[in-house]
Design a protein around this nucleic acid. Structure first.
Lengths: 126, 126
DNA sequence: TCAAAACATAACGTTAACGTAAAGGTTTTA
DNA sequence: TAAAACCTTTACGTTAACGTTATGTTTTGA
């Protein structure tokens, strides 16, 4: 199949596929004739895997470290282990973000209260 | 004073001051001689106000809506009210972000557990 | 057989708030 | 009076993941 069909079946745009190719994430099986990209079911599968990993929140850079493991280890154990490792670091970062946001929230509340009080004090006569 | 001194006294770089000028946030009192920017204490005060508002987490775009009120209303009431309004919307957005992150955290946990279980099931013999 | 559909590459646009460098005037100070 | 210090404008770089032209080639269907 060519890029348009692959794109449609995977739910992405041709631009996305070419972009992934430029990152080394995915290549066409071959470039026949005048240079059109031709793909097989294997590439569709690989593209869907990329899609799934994106759904887990991995960046394309992270995916590029997972994909080789994922497709070159028949048991897929090493790929899965790598994913768990990445997800755990995401969990850690998420906890830190939540903490930082809670802190930020408190400061916002304090600022609102402080300024609102200033307003109340200076607009009593109105 | 010229841009270098203003920058140093306000704790920013000359580049920042020129950038603010390009956004209409701050202008020099005058451009004498060969085109040097000259500032007074009034611009220092304005720059410090911008700095303070940034400290509250306002974007330069938001600041540009606050600054005029702030410096053209002698009571500063309208400026303060606008700030409270913006801060409240920030509070709202922050709550939404925290909620989304908590949701994301749950999904991460679930994915980690699921994949880890897969690994455990497929690597018992090793 | 010819127009429409699909494909190709190249390159700019998107966001915020400046950092940094280039190439060149001006002011200050020793 | 000359060099150091300061100033000017212009413009590219920074981040991620593509979207969107623009321009030209190839395939396909009536």
């Amino acid at each position: 199949m060519r890029i348009g069909e692959l794109a449609e079946r995977a739910g992405v745009t041709p631009r996305t596929i070419r972009y992934y190719e430029s990152l080394g994430l995915l290549g066409p099986s071959e470039r026949e004739g005048a240079g059109f990209r031709y793909y097989t079911e294997a590439e569709l599968s690989r593209l869907q895997t990329i899609h799934n990993l994106k759904g887990l929140g991995l960046s394309l850079e992270e995916i590029s470290t997972v994909i080789p493991l994922y497709f070159e280890d028949p048991t897929r154990l090493s790929g899965k282990r790598k994913i768990v490792e990445i997800l755990k670091s995401h969990l850690h970062e998420t906890d830190e973000k939540i903490e930082a946001l809670n802190q930020f929230r408190s400061e916002l509340q304090a600022n609102i209260s402080r300024i609102q009080q200033w307003i109340d004090e200076h607009s009593e006569s109105q």
